[in-house]
Amino acid sequence: MTKLTLGSHPYLLGFEQLERLMERTAKTGNEGYPPFNIEQTSDHGYRITLAVAGFREEDLSITVEDSQLVIRGRNSDDGDDRVFLHRGIAARQFQRSFVLADGVEVAGATMEHGLLHVDLKRSVPETVVQTIKINQG
């Protein structure tokens, strides 16, 4: 019995890249920090919210690299002379990655009350009907 993978199924033509995409997503190495939510805001809109308490806007970067949304945080500790009796607020750097489907773009980002909101929008492709002429050979 031959095992069919997603990319080799006879009715899914041209989806080989989807299998590679799923493998790449599994390798992103995202740990549990910082915590995040993903919500659907409309039929074609999404919002990713990350809890980034202690980070300033200039400590964060948001990029799209090869259909992958990458959010990085690097907290600049400007209070080296401070002595903590207890440090429960994480101040470590992080990187969160999210794979974006074709047609999904970053609409913008805002920060409020220690939460970073990244809004995404999905453009709806036009339906195209194409008639193929059969040539006689």
Rank of each mutant, 00 (worst) to 15 (best):
I134Q: 11
F36P: 06
V106R: 00
T131A: 05
V52C: 09
I62L: 06
K121A: 05
R20C: 05
L100R: 02
D80W: 12
E126L: 08
N37R: 14
L85V: 04
L120A: 03
P35Y: 00
D119R: 10
A109D: 05
D77L: 13
Q17L: 13
N75P: 08
Y46D: 00
R24K: 12
G88L: 07
E19Y: 04
A109N: 09
G137I: 15
M111G: 01
F15W: 15
E105K: 02
F36Q: 11
F94S: 01
G7D: 03
L12R: 08
I132H: 11
F36V: 03
I132A: 08
P35E: 01
R24F: 05
Y33H: 11
I89R: 09
S97V: 14
P125F: 00
G108N: 01
L60Y: 08
Y46I: 00
D66Y: 03
I38Q: 14
I134G: 00
Q40A: 02
M111A: 03
D80S: 10
P10N: 10
G88N: 08
G45T: 02
G7W: 07
P35T: 01
T25N: 14
F84T: 01
N37L: 15
F36D: 07
H117N: 13
G137H: 15
K27H: 09
S8R: 04
E57Q: 14
M1K: 10
E126G: 12
S123W: 00
N30L: 02
K121E: 12
K133Y: 13
F84Q: 06
N75V: 11
T131C: 00
G79L: 09
F36T: 03
Q68R: 15
L120R: 05
M22W: 10
D43W: 08
E57W: 10
T28H: 14
R74C: 11
I62P: 07
R87T: 09
S42G: 14
Y11C: 12
E39C: 09
P34E: 00
L120G: 04
N30G: 09
L115T: 02
A109H: 15
R92G: 08
R56L: 05
D102N: 05
T5Y: 15
D78R: 13
D77C: 04
V118W: 05
G45C: 01
D102K: 12
S76W: 09
R87L: 10
R122P: 01
E19G: 08
P125N: 03
F98Y: 13
T110C: 04
Y11A: 15
V106N: 02
L100I: 03
E39S: 15
A101E: 08
T131E: 06
V104N: 03
G45N: 06
Y11V: 15
V124E: 15
L69N: 07
R20G: 11
G32E: 12
Q93N: 15
T5Q: 11
R72V: 06
T25W: 08
T2F: 07
D81Q: 14
Y33I: 03
I89L: 14
E57F: 10
R24V: 07
V129L: 12
V52I: 12
L100K: 06
N75T: 00
F84H: 13
R24T: 03
D43K: 14
E19F: 13
N37G: 11
T5I: 08
M111E: 03
L4W: 14
D80C: 02
S42I: 06
E65G: 09
G14N: 00
S97D: 01
L115M: 10
A107F: 03
D59L: 10
P10Y: 07
Y46S: 04
A107L: 07
